[in-house]
Design a protein around this nucleic acid. Structure first.
Lengths: 220, 220
DNA sequence: GCCCTGTTAAAACAAATGTTTGTGTCTCTC
DNA sequence: GAGAGACACAAACATTTGTTTTAACAGGGC
């Protein structure tokens, strides 16, 4: 069979290795030897290791951003004539459906989610800057819809809860392999990412709609 | 003023740097030069970089484990005669109270939470093994109480929700500074860690008690 | 005095890292 | 078929990494 070309062989190998070990812990030599390409190929095609990392993300996120923008267009259109806002359930359903639809090849979803988690937790300031610059507007659009979906929530409360839930997703998915191993050992159940996302959606909905905490008793 | 001794100077510096950049991204030379100690001091006092990382965690977790065990003793005693299980709210209240009581020095809580997050997300297999070995029993005790507090939840569902919530807390508190800055800029509200934890508790309770998702439509 | 022990200091070590260089080898264009 | 451009390859380069070695220093007990 014809091997895919050098660039995609590097990307394929790099994304898996990055997801397994993190960025700093994965050397170019490990990548290139496993991908059966020359060491210098990375610097030739991508320029630097940083650019390679960004390219790995772009290959996932670019199609996702397009799909998600389109899905949000459709969603807003459906609720345009009714004067209602897009309900929270529908918004989350659209998000998860778009995320789950993207790959269809390999177990790329797991890899992608793990990479997202690493993007937050690893240092890699250049990566955060890159993601903010490339996909910041998409995030803004989503949060605006979220705002309209939960109008009864005070601004700050929604802000904190959003990041609370964001943290959950990133944390769970970035540590997925380890957690799944534990779950399999303890409960003998091997769950797919699809199913996990599906099962956690009501948890997010309920959490966003939780009652506001009573004012805290003053201390000190 | 008398400088603290070499060992604690190393620990103080290392924990901050680790929290800022991660473990692999922080070199011993950065630590020792910032701590104003000799490079070889780390290997002399701790043996290796791995052992230093573990020591940073032990300095936080050892006192916490003692306090939390004691707090759980008291909590169980209070509910011993009543045949009821410890309610979820009380369990979470005990946990957050213990966490908040420990430090009182530096802004160590924030740093500690960030380290905990890194411990999960970074490779560092030795660290996970160490934490499991040293504090596994405390975690087991807590999850057992959690199990009794949510008897209607299937085992695996509780497992995943627990880690879901764990992720939230770690994520929020580890990125606290950045998030708080945004919140202050956007909403003009500066919230304390205490208050944040207080306000997020009902979110956790509600999330744990969320309805089970309906079975997922089969695909491929 | 001397020796022993615990600690610090400077230097060197071996290994691993990202990147660059020079050369060879195709393939397409004129 | 000659020349050019794109790519692959091996080797070397300059740093940076964790760790070890060796010597120096300080203090207390005999």
């Amino acid at each position: 069979m014809a091997q895919p070309d050098t660039v995609t062989r590097i990307l394929d190998t790099a994304e898996v290795l990055f997801a397994e070990r993190g960025f700093a812990e994965t050397s170019l030599r490990t990548i290139t030897s496993k991908a059966k390409v020359n060491l210098a190929a990375v610097n030739y095609h991508f320029g630097s290791k940083k650019s390679l990392i960004q390219a790995v993300f772009a290959r996932y996120l670019d199609p996702f951003a397009v799909s998600f923008h389109a899905a949000l267009d459709a969603l807003e259109a459906r609720y345009r004539d009714t004067s209602d806002a897009v309900p929270l359930e529908a918004l989350l359903e659209t998000l998860t459906r778009t995320v789950l639809e993207i790959p269809a090849e390999r177990d790329s979803l797991k890899v992608f989610m793990r990479l997202l988690g690493l993007a937050y937790s690893q240092a890699q300031g250049h990566l955060r800057r890159y993601l903010q610059q490339e996909y910041g507007d998409l995030f803004t659009r989503f949060t605006e819809l979220l705002r309209r979906a939960t109008p009864e929530l005070p601004e700050t409360e929604r802000f904190w809860r959003l990041h609370f839930m964001l943290g959950s997703v990133i944390f769970i998915l970035s540590g997925l392999d380890a957690l799944r191993d534990i779950a399999e050992k303890d409960f003998g159940e091997r769950v797919s990412v699809r199913e996990l996302v599906h099962r956690l959606r009501p948890v997010v909905v309920e959490a966003m709609n939780a009652p506001i905490a009573p004012p805290m008793p003053a201390s000190t």
